[in-house]
C-alpha cells in the first residue's frame, strides 16, 4: 500500500488533490483518489514492484513520484508548488 500526504508550500494539507497511477507493474483500475481534509491518501498496490503516481490539483504544478513497493507499505510526502501562470 502507498500511504501519503500532500501539502502546499506552507506545509498545510491540501484537500481534494487527485492522486492516480501513471505506471504500475500490473493492470490498475483507472480511478483517482481524492486527498482528505488532512491531505492524506491511501492507494492499494496489488503486487510488489515500481509504481508511479501523480498528484494534480488546481493552482499547483502536477507532481510525479515513483514508489517501489516490496513487502511493506511505503509512505510518501508530496509538496505541491504553486503553478506559475
Amino acid at each position: 500500500m502507498i500511504v501519503g500526504v500532500v501539502r502546499d508550500e506552507a506545509a498545510a494539507p491540501v484537500k481534494d488533490v487527485r492522486v492516480y497511477f501513471t505506471h504500475a507493474p500490473v493492470a490498475i483500475p483507472d480511478v483517482a483518489a481524492l486527498t482528505g481534509a488532512d491531505g492524506k491518501f491511501m492507494l492499494g498496490a496489488p503486487v510488489d514492484g515500481s509504481y508511479t503516481i501523480e498528484c494534480a490539483a488546481e493552482g499547483f504544478d502536477t507532481v510525479r513520484r515513483t514508489v517501489v513497493i516490496t513487502e511493506r507499505d511505503e509512505e510518501v510526502e508530496i509538496n505541491l508548488a504553486p503553478r506559475i501562470p
Binding site: 497511477f21 501513471t22 505506471h23 504500475a24 507493474p25 500490473v26 493492470a27 490498475i28 483507472d30 503486487v47
Partner: peptide
C-alpha cells in the same frame, strides 16, 4: 493482460 505473471507494466 488481465491475470497471472508475468504482468505487463501499466501506463494509461
Amino acid at each position: 493482460a488481465s491475470f497471472g505473471p508475468p504482468r505487463p507494466q501499466a501506463e494509461t
